[in-house]
């Protein structure tokens, strides 16, 4: 016990300096004005940004759902492969992440443009061009593309632990494929699902460069708004901190819900 504590000291120090202290600072900034006196004006003023918050939540939720739909069968398929192939496929999942995030998003920009590769390909058959860039769909695509690995990996790590014999037992007892999936695989994968949802939803809701590059800057997200407060014209770290605080509350709520759903309750819900 004592040893475990001693080992965690470096991380505790790290956490205090780089996580707790900045969080406290954000709180202080959010509740003060430029002169340093207490105010709740920053927080109450956030109401007028409701459409931006709404759009961010909406787009992040869609992106998370799509990620889950794509990643779940994918992760299951990988977890049932031979070990060598598993390693290969995991590497393929990780491969895009070896490249810089900005570059990947920039590449999508030139792919989706009206004179971009995709529209030129359609042009060969005389169709198009389709408006793809600068739409909300493009923003969601950017989120899904960039954060999909964060959904696949936790799902995969949970699913490799599902023993084949469990599935076989269910089949022996007469469960159809659909039943096996909904009664055995999904409940066992719940920890992976909740981690995956958090790991995709959180960066999606706070992203800013994706909406700027793929959304054309007309689809502002919370991240853009916060960035504007710090690097924009008026330099208002207090309002920016207040926004960050509200964003954190939203994220905390989502996390508390996803993490409080354990497999038992999910089972209840499915029944």
């Amino acid at each position: 016990m004592f040893k475990a504590k001693a080992v965690s000291v470096p991380y505790l120090i790290w956490m205090a300096i780089f996580i707790i202290a900045p969080l406290v600072l954000v709180g202080i900034f959010a509740l003060t004005d430029a002169e340093g006196s207490f105010t709740i004006e920053n927080l109450s003023g956030i109401g007028r940004f409701t459409p931006v918050f709404a759009r961010s939540i909406w787009l992040a939720a869609i992106a998370t759902a799509i990620c889950l739909l794509i990643a779940f069968p994918m992760a299951f398929a990988i977890s049932r492969m031979s070990e060598r192939r598993q390693n290969l496929f995991l590497m393929l999942v990780m491969l895009p992440m070896w490249m810089n995030f900005l570059l990947r998003t920039y590449a999508w920009m030139s792919l989706l443009e009206n004179n971009g590769l995709i529209n030129r390909f359609f042009g060969l058959f005389g169709i198009g061009p389709f408006q793809m860039i600068n739409t909300q769909g493009a923003v969601v695509l950017g989120m899904v593309y960039n954060y999909l690995p964060f959904m696949i990996l936790p799902l995969y790590s949970v699913m490799t632990k599902i023993d084949n014999s469990v599935i076989e037992a269910a089949q022996d007892l007469g469960a159809s494929n659909g039943k096996v999936f909904s009664k055995v695989i999904i409940p066992l994968a719940v920890p992976g699902i909740t981690t995956g949802i958090t790991m995709v939803f959180v960066p999606s809701i706070s992203t800013f460069i994706i909406s700027r590059m793929l959304g054309g800057g007309g689809n502002l997200l919370i991240g853009d708004l916060i960035e504007m407060q710090f690097l924009g014209n008026s330099y208002n770290p207090h309002l920016g901190s207040a926004m960050a605080l509200v964003l954190m509350v939203i994220v905390l709520f989502t996390m508390s819900i996803t993490s409080s759903i354990d497999s038992e309750e999910l089972e209840d819900m499915l029944i």
């Binding site: 007028r48 409701t50 459409p51 931006v52 918050f53 709404a54 759009r55 708004l225 014209n233 208002n236």
Partner: peptide
Amino acid sequence: INKLMDKLWTEIRSYNESANDWIAP
């Protein structure tokens, strides 16, 4: 004026006729 400009600018950039104010709350 700088503050006003920033406020207006955010309004412009997040302005969307079809947006529903009620989704977030």
